[in-house]
């Protein structure tokens, strides 16, 4: 695999984007906690496939996505359940419901795998969308690395989800192996992937590259760069979230 390099793009792209994307591609190819490297890269391929899936297109255009039955256009050997998870989250996130999530769990997918799929999906989508937004060809997916998932599960998980659909860590984690994830207390959106702590670490790394260091999130007047003010950054974020139908 050639490393990600944006120096030939049409725009002047700071090196930290390529560095961050390369770090993530390395993590993408490596075994995770609940997925092998091959499965993680397969999730990435399926994220790309979802955008041209006929069933997803029909569902997106339907009054309710549940009115349309059929099979997704696969790009991988992942299970039908994982393919449904990836395609629905990529193409129609604003209409996900607890009933849909419960149906996925009833099909036998573990919450741990679900969270890791979501973590991979999100990071690959962010990097691909960055490229699409700047008219850069998508980066070649990495070759998976051999090895097994480590099946790591934090000890102090709140199994009830504390109001979320998935189990997650408490908002304060003062000690133990997860104490590096955030300082003091944090919000749900950072805790959301904490059933698989490495997915939080990967998420925060890319968050800093694209947006802001999570430690600075409450500095609401400061901006990490002089290109955009914080208000300008939040304006873009708010419009994107509105068009995704995201309340959070």
């Amino acid at each position: 695999m050639t490393s990600i390099d944006y120096t030939d793009s049409n725009y002047s792209i700071r090196q930290s984007f390529a560095d961050g994307h390369n770090r993530y591609w390395e993590r993408l190819a490596s075994p995770g906690s609940w997925l092998t490297g091959a499965e993680r890269v397969a999730v990435a391929a399926e994220v790309r496939q979802a955008k041209s899936c006929g069933l997803c297109e029909q569902r997106k255009n339907a009054l309710s996505p549940y009115q349309v039955d059929g099979a997704h256009d696969h790009a991988s050997e992942l299970s039908d359940t994982i393919v449904e998870v990836i395609h629905r989250i990529v193409t129609d996130p604003g209409r996900l419901t607890k009933t849909w999530f419960d149906g996925i769990m009833q099909q036998g997918l573990s919450a741990e795998k679900y969270v890791e799929v979501l973590g991979v999906l999100g990071n690959v989508l962010a990097i691909d969308e960055f490229c699409r937004g700047l008219d850069i060809p998508l980066n070649e997916l990495p070759e998976p690395k051999a090895g097994e998932a480590d099946s790591y599960r934090p000890a102090n998980i709140r199994e009830d989800g504390d109001g979320a659909w998935v189990p997650l860590l408490p908002n304060i984690v003062d000690d133990g192996p997860e104490s590096d994830l955030w300082e003091n207390r944090t919000g749900y959106v950072i805790r959301a992937l904490s059933l698989v702590p490495n997915e939080v670490r990967h998420m925060l790394d890319l968050l800093e590259v694209h947006y802001i260091d999570n430690k600075q999130i409450w500095n609401v007047t400061g901006s990490p760069r002089d290109t955009l003010t914080r208000a300008q950054m939040e304006t873009v974020a708010a419009r994107v979230s509105a068009l995704n139908g995201c309340f959070y």
């Binding site: 725009y11 989508l125 659909w165 749900y188 992937l193 998420m203 890319l206 694209h210 995704n244 959070y248």
Partner: peptide, 30 residues
């Protein structure tokens, strides 16, 4: 605003494509 502002604006937009999906797919409350 210049090229660097464009790149950072697309950086923010693309990361919120991810953050919105994490929020929606985990059913987190505010």
């Amino acid at each position: 605003m210049g090229e660097e502002a464009l790149v950072d604006a697309i950086g923010v937009a693309s990361i919120f494509q991810r953050m919105d999906r994490i929020a929606d797919a985990t059913g987190i409350p505010s």
